[in-house]
Computed example of a mutant assay.
Amino acid sequence: MNASAVDTNVQDRIAAMISVYGENGAVPARSQWEALMSLPADAPVTLLNFFKLRREAHYADGSGVSPCSGQEAFSRYAAVSAPGLEKVGGRFLLLAPFGFAFVGEDEDWDFVAAGSYPDRNAVLALFEDRDYRKAYVHRVAACERQKVLLCLA
């Protein structure tokens, strides 16, 4: 998808998010934001999140955040992200420890979360939320790796 297919207002919103979050693999890249925003405006969106947590959270030097485990850092993030999801009209469909791959290649994750959003703008609104932005540092510090898949449902 090219940038001309997404209107200027959306491009400005995406640029603002990239300026806050960056494009470091822990958040959507510009092309992924554009793909999200090219979806039908009223289509429900579900994000399937797979998380592998670090033993010790990795915060940037001078962050002022007290050291903790990856699990504790993720709990700090979840304390804000869960209410934030509800605030934009979404809800969790699943929060569960990862078991194993039943079909296909085996993967190693700690837990899985499926969040349902009423539409693409709700996803964008969550990332634009001031409290969510502040809490995202905990998600980045907590996760050794993550994978987020988007489903239209």
Score class of each variant (00 low, 15 high):
Q146M: 11
G89K: 00
A96P: 00
L149S: 15
P118I: 09
Y117S: 00
V20S: 09
E107D: 06
G22V: 04
F100R: 15
L53P: 05
S31R: 15
G104H: 14
A78W: 01
K87H: 04
D42K: 14
R145Y: 03
V65N: 10
L150R: 00
A141P: 04
E56Q: 06
S31Y: 14
V103A: 15
G62W: 08
C68M: 00
Q32G: 04
L126G: 10
F102N: 13
L53N: 01
P83T: 13
V88C: 06
L47H: 07
D108S: 14
N49S: 13
A41F: 09
Q146T: 13
V123C: 13
D131Q: 10
L152W: 04
G104S: 11
E128G: 14
L149N: 07
K52S: 12
Q71G: 05
E72G: 01
E56A: 05
L36P: 11
M17N: 05
N9F: 14
L48P: 05
V65S: 07
Y21L: 08
V27S: 03
A5S: 09
A78C: 01
E72V: 00
P44V: 01
P97R: 14
A73E: 01
A26C: 08
A141C: 05
A79D: 14
C143K: 05
M17D: 12
L94G: 04
E144G: 05
E23V: 12
G99E: 03
A78G: 12
M17T: 02
V112F: 14
I18A: 14
N24I: 02
A15G: 06
D110G: 12
C68G: 01
L36M: 04
E105M: 02
N9W: 03
M37C: 12
Y21R: 03
L48H: 15
E34H: 10
R91N: 12
E56K: 02
P67A: 12
V88K: 02
A82L: 09
R55C: 03
E105I: 03
G22Y: 06
Y77A: 05
K52A: 07
L48S: 14
S75T: 10
D106C: 04
D7T: 14
A135E: 02
F111S: 13
R133Q: 12
Q146V: 12
C143M: 08
S69H: 09
A29V: 13
R145E: 09
L93F: 07
D12Q: 13
V80P: 05
Q71I: 09
V148R: 08
G90R: 07
L93M: 07
A135D: 12
L150M: 11
A78S: 11
S81R: 08
K134G: 09
R13G: 13
Y132G: 03
D110I: 01
A78K: 08
G70K: 09
A35N: 11
L47V: 04
L149G: 10
K134N: 11
